[in-house]
Amino acid sequence: MFGKELIRGIYTENPVFRLLFGLCPALAVTTAADTGLGMGLATTTVLLGSNLVVSLLKNVIPPAVRIPSFIVIIATFVTLVGMTMEAFFYPMFEALGIFIPLIVVNCLILGRAEAFASKNTLGRSLVDAIVMGIGFTISLGLLGAVREILGSGSILGFQLVPGTVDMALVFALPPGAFISLGLMLAALNYIAIRRKEA
């Protein structure tokens, strides 16, 4: 059961590559694998918190004010995560910068709250948060890894090619994010089409 859900989060409904959710952080912070993973984990934490609370309160919140309520809940968790990171994981906090507070407007979180947690049981909402979070984290980590390898020839700070080799700096820059994401989307779509045809 959980395995099937996990595949849903990682592949069939992958938030970044299939649903195209949360592209802003996916493009902005994935200059290296570690920042991508860090962003993914921070987002997963917020997602877990917001899905939990939204699912618990789904019968209490009047439908007319549900969006403001969700936003307040999400913003609270984002701020909590931000403060905790600043206190205990400062280098990651600094590397992610403005994109931590911007998790508030990540449509993945509001999307899951609105489309899933507000209609499902606590248990299912938590599972959804976990699998979606994992899918998001893996996507950002993957994108970050591709950009780190092509852009600086290293992975998670470990140098793969000698430092004297000039890697394509463009992948560490914003245009490289678009190019990498575009190529990865194209590859995934190609695989999906081939599967359907088969």
Binding site: D166, M167, A168, L169, V170, F171, L173, P175, G176, I179
Partner: peptide, 11 residues
């Protein structure tokens, strides 16, 4: 050119 310019600005 944009691609190589951004990738290897020194060269």
């Amino acid at each position: 050119r944009a691609f190589v310019f951004m990738s290897w600005p020194v060269a």
